[in-house]
Write a protein that binds this DNA or RNA. Structure first.
Lengths: 315, 315
DNA sequence: AGGCCATCTGCTCATTCGAGCAAAGCCGTG
DNA sequence: CACGGCTTTGCTCGAATGAGCAGATGGCCT
């Protein structure tokens, strides 16, 4: 497009979108035919001069969803818009809302749903509506008895989801990570724990988030890892954790000894499951979201616009 | 609009604007009639969920232009868009470009054009195209022999504008502000100076900018005022200067003694002129732009989106 | 100069869209 | 339960628009 047409296109776009004039009227104003106006407008669109944004917390970016599905071979993807956000927290809230919506609309309704815990999952649980489903039981996928702060949020998350669907929650009464391998084996051999783990493996769908590998991690907040242990994991390539297990950017376990001491489903079991839904959003989680998407740890990814663009650019 | 319709409207907008589906197709997807889809879309528009932006350095905001004309009784207004700017400087550049465009399109072509000087005006002069008009002579409206930095930019601005239109520039060989009133009278009585001032009063159109009253002012940079003198002006209510004369937010001279020592056309002469075009843009200039618009110092205002909104909100 | 290819222009026609209207649904009231 | 006002729904019809095409235009090489 030459400069004169470009300027004409801008004038036409102003009159068409801001002043609600018809292409015919614009033609008279700019002294061109209405067909030329139509061509100018489509040229302006395809040159990217015209940006149309849907500003709403529930708005999604369907184009990015399609590109994510195609690029990473995902079964499904949900990308929430970042338009009009006022704080970082809002990105997480929007993604959590989208996950709640997705879960509500999920068909067939999973009789048994495996869930993880964490800030995002807690947000999802609180945004689900009462009666979002009827008779969905919930089981925890990984240990989450918090050691110090905010005790019981892991349990509350699962309970909340189950109660609102009129179902039961099966809680995993165990820490996330044990200090000694023997303790971990002892806990695993407990009949209740073993039964819950077995139940989790049979869940029809899994909904989980992921944590970034930094000092804001829920594992540090909960006291399962010290900041220096986490630094060591980062040194080994960790980008974040999925159901308590730290992975590198290829989705591989970074510390197999630590992994052995972690209670809950294994990542291979997760990869083998058919309906795995990950909710991972926000700029801190770009790296771990990439690891998830590339390594097949989830079949469905629920994320935000910024993360989606980062993943697609990174490819 | 209830919540269900709101969500439907968002889905419809996504499919319509992002996926280019017809309203009929969307109706099939969402299980509503195509008329309902149309109504949802117009509801979404009027609720402000759909934001259409024209992202281009030459884009204008016609709505704001109309509101400025109506609110301040301006003959004309040009408001450049702020969409997609990467730095503050770009706002000034866009406004300068708009001023150059405006001048080029101005009819009837002014045989004699009065101009001021400063960063913005210099930018305007450099963005005018060679041959933007034929046979337009230019005259300086106010003194501008710089005392220290960037000598000659005031003269270069006027020369540039004139040369590109194949005309002559009449320069005012005088400082902007004199220290002593006697010196000012002496300079004014010089035959060349008097002739140029007389010529300026007869210009058919005037194009000028305005400076903000702060320590970045061109008057301080050029050495006409010391920072402390400027602080004193601010204390008296100065918001900025127009052709070298400091005004308060009502457009009145704040220091009549200083005004007396300033060489160039007077503000009353400017108010009485028929075709006065001011270019004032950027967040620093909101106050002085407001003074200009409210006090009738310009008939045409060329500014940016942010300033226009500030002016309209302030009313 | 003449001819050729690529682009641009203005048109026809079919599709899509929006304004306006009558009928249907909804709600509170007597 | 019947009634009257109010909103919502599905429709008709004409305006607005986009796709596709034939002819015009213009640069460019021979």
């Amino acid at each position: 497009m030459n400069e004169i047409d470009e300027l004409l296109a801008i004038r036409a776009a102003e009159l068409y979108f801001e002043e609600d004039k018809t292409q015919d009227e614009i033609g008279q104003i700019l002294n061109v035919t209405r067909w030329k106006v139509g061509r100018l407008l489509s040229a302006a669109k395809s040159s990217g001069f015209i940006r149309i944004e849907i500003v709403h917390p529930r708005a999604r970016r369907l184009q990015l969803e399609r590109r994510l599905r195609e690029t990473f071979g995902l079964e499904d993807a949900v990308v929430v818009s970042n338009a009009g956000i006022s704080s970082q927290d809002e990105i997480q809230i929007r993604a959590a809302q989208a996950a709640a919506d997705y879960l509500t609309a999920l068909r067939p309704v999973p009789r048994l749903l495996g869930v993880s815990w964490g800030r995002t999952m807690h947000e999802v649980s609180s945004r689900l509506k009462n009666g979002w489903a009827s008779g969905v039981n919930v089981v925890q996928m990984n240990g989450g008895v918090s050691l110090n702060k905010r005790p019981g949020t892991a349990a509350a998350t699962a309970m909340n989801i189950a109660q609102k669907a009129g179902g039961q929650a099966a809680l995993l009464p165990s820490p996330a990570i044990l200090e000694r391998l023997e303790t971990k084996h002892a806990i695993e051999s407990d009949r209740v724990v073993a039964a819950v783990l077995e139940m989790a493996r049979n869940a029809k769908a899994f909904l989980f988030s992921a944590g970034q590998a930094d000092h804001d991690s829920a594992h540090i907040e909960s006291g399962y890892l010290s900041p220096s242990e986490l630094d060591e994991l980062v040194r080994k390539g960790a980008v974040g954790d999925v159901i308590g297990r730290y992975i590198d950017s290829d989705g591989n376990i970074v510390d197999s000894a630590l992994n052995e001491r972690t209670i809950g489903m294994g990542l291979d079991e997760l990869r083998a499951a058919s309906n795995t839904i990950a909710v991972v959003a926000g700029p801190m989680k770009h790296a771990v979201a990439g690891a998830l998407a590339r390594s097949g740890l989830c079949k469905t990814l629920i994320t935000d616009e910024g993360t989606a663009i980062a993943l697609l650019d990174g490819e």
